[in-house]
Structures are given as structure tokens and as C-alpha cells.
Design a protein around this nucleic acid. Sequence first.
DNA 1: TATTGTGAAGTGGTTCACAGCT
DNA 2: AGCTGTGAACCACTTCACAATA
Lengths: 216, 216
Amino acid sequence: MIHKATRSRRVAPSTVRRLSLYLGFLEQRRQDGAATVPSRALAEAGGATPAQVRKDLSFFGSFGRRGVGYPVAPLAERVRAILGLDRGHRVVVVGAGPLGAALAPGAGWRERGFEVAAVYDLDPARIGTAQGGLVVRDAARLEADLAGRPADIGVVGVPVEAAQGVADRLVRAGVRALLNLAPVHLDVPSGVAVTQVNLALELDALAFAIRAGGRK
Amino acid sequence: MIHKATRSRRVAPSTVRRLSLYLGFLEQRRQDGAATVPSRALAEAGGATPAQVRKDLSFFGSFGRRGVGYPVAPLAERVRAILGLDRGHRVVVVGAGPLGAALAPGAGWRERGFEVAAVYDLDPARIGTAQGGLVVRDAARLEADLAGRPADIGVVGVPVEAAQGVADRLVRAGVRALLNLAPVHLDVPSGVAVTQVNLALELDALAFAIRAGGRK
DNA sequence: TATTGTGAAGTGGTTCACAGCT
DNA sequence: AGCTGTGAACCACTTCACAATA
């Protein structure tokens, strides 16, 4: 099996991340009623350089006009489509802890195309409590629920020890992507996407930066 | 071992992030009583390859024994020192929202060397409420408090519109590193470290991955 | 035999610089 | 003149391959 997935050049993960930031900026400018923006402005919003912005966008097509800039509304629509935000995504959250709570419904995910369909927990003390308008369900029901209505994205918000197990269950239940909030690396079959949000790791990185950059 | 600060090539950010994952694994193995671990095991824990692990570690010195592996406890100590976790770090959190709450004291940060000294908020409705054993303080007091006891790390957990302003204030008050929980890029003077935790961006990345690699 | 440490080669993302439109 | 689009140069991180060592 010599299939390398998409024949077309692969998109750099860093490009995708910047597109998300560009989109946030574009929507803000759209509110302001701006008609066009130069790559320089997008660069500032995305923590990149103007050349980087142009490279990122040119990968998907020519959206700007030379001498003018990029049209705000059409570009926002295009970026939204590129990221796949033009269709809705069903999200299930497992783990109603502090981080999981940030993913609870009502935080504005819906406007961006993410529907938080259910929140589960392993801890009996949490099951049945309210979480952003939803009642926390017993994680034991996960498989049965998802068999009826599959989800696209699973959020792993349980403690480290339980994280890999929950990930395995979510993958078996058919989710195609995982957002991992536990401070461990998750092993998943190829074909399932994972992104990590690891607060401990970020703090460690800051501690290192302070240590290393201690000279002035 | 003429390998120390003599030649200060820069450390790759990705190396630092993996070191944090290696450390988590080492501490777990130490609990289990393991004496040594091969690079293969560390690689699995860090989502890397054995060669990558050896490169990462060899950057800082020779900690392993050929034919045997790496001694668990000494390596854990070394990595902790490399990351700068052997000294305490004072952390102040601004924004007692859902994400900020995940940083509240009690989540085990102290064991890793991070002391959450205070939690602030701009919203009068939140000021005075309890957050993980601390009373949420008025963000207006930030400068006065930090003048007395400076903090090393500031957490920006306020809404997007307020994020840059809070970042500026934290930097002016002397923090050397920022953990940004708001979904925007922060502009800070060079010399101040920033790491982003952006849930919206991670979900966008997953949406893109599903769209692009939708094959199963 | 097992596993580390590391120069060398490889890969892929970023920056440059300028041609091409407006 | 101003700004985009893009091949090419550049640079940084990763992987390879093997000598060194237990």
C-alpha cells in the first residue's frame, strides 16, 4: 500500500494554526466594516511576517489584489471553508473537570461551527451535575450514545491515568479527531487527528525561557 | 564532558516541549521503582523517536550508559534542572473564567514548582468570590501587589478585547513570562516569553484535519 | 548483544527578493 | 508607487547510520 494520502503538497501544521488566527482577525475587521486588509495587518494578528501570510494564503489560491490587499469578507469566507468550519462539527467532552468546563456549551463554540453535544464523566460525583446547560452523563453510556449519533471530535478531559483509555474508547466509537487536555502523549491510530493542550507543559516551557533568557 | 555553557547553541522549542513530556514519564517510572529506561521508552512517552530523544538529551550532556539506558532518578533531576523547575516560580492569574480556573491553586502546580500566588479579575461580579482557596482580587490592585512581591509568570485569562491590555500591564509590572489563554496573538517586548493555549485554534486545527484527511 | 552519542544527510518550513498587477 | 504571488535560498529540526561502550 503505497498511498501517501493526498497527492497535493501537504499543508504545514503551522500554516493551519496561523489561518485560525487570521480568521479571528478578519472577523474582527469585518465588524469594523473594513473592505480590505494588507498582508502586513494579518501578519501582526498571526504573529507572522507579511511574506509568511502571503505564502500561507497563496497555497490555497490567489485571494488578494496586487497593490490593494485582501478583501476582508470574501477572504474570511474562504479561510473558513479551508479550515472546514463551513460545516458543523459534533463534539463530545469526556471529563467535566476545570479544563473540560472551558469546552462546555455556551462559550461561543457554536458560532464557530462546533456543537458540544454531550459532556461525560467517569466520576460518579460529577455525573448528573449541570455543565453549561447540559447534564453530565455517565461515561459508561459513551458507546451507546455515539452508536446512535456519531461525533466528529472527542475531548479527553480526564486525569492522566484515564486519558489513553478514554481516547481508545472515543476512537473505537468513531470520532475522527481528539482534543487532548491531559498532560500525556496519546497514542492513536493513523487517520485520527490529535491536538494537545497541556498547561503543565506550557508552564514548563515558560520556566525554561525564564531560566535561559535570564541574561539581559 | 566539555559540553556545558561554553557553546550556547539555541535549544529548539520543540526540544523543550518534549523534555517536559519526558519528565512526566520519568516521574511515573520513578514511582514504579524502575532504575533505568531506554530512549525507546522515553520516545513513546514524548511522541518522538529514540534518536530524537538521544539528540534532545545529548544537547545538555551525556546522561545515559551505552548498552543500558538512562538512569531514571538522576535523569529526572537533570531534566528538572534544565527546565528550571528546581526553583519556585510565582504565578499570578488574571481572569477567573473557566480557563483561568484550571490554573487555580490546588491542581498540583505547587508540586511542579509553580506557586499560584493570586487570582485577579476585571469583572466586579467575580471579585471577592473564591477560586481554589484564594479570593479573587480586583485587577486594579495588580500593579500595587506586584510592586511589593513581583511574580515570574502572568496568566492572561481575560476575554480577547482585554487580553493585550492585561498583557501590557503584567509586563510593565515585571513578569518575565506570559501564559496566554485568550484566542489572540499577544505582542510583547523581546525578553518576555509567551506561550499560547488557544482552544478555538486547536478545534480549528482538528476541523481542518478531518476535512483534509477524511479517509478512514 | 544492547543501547547511547553524534556527525552527516535529509526534510520541510521560513525568509528573501523581485516579477507582475493595480 | 503599493502590494501580492512565488521560485529560490536559507535555515532549523529530524532522521540516519554507525562508532563507542557496557
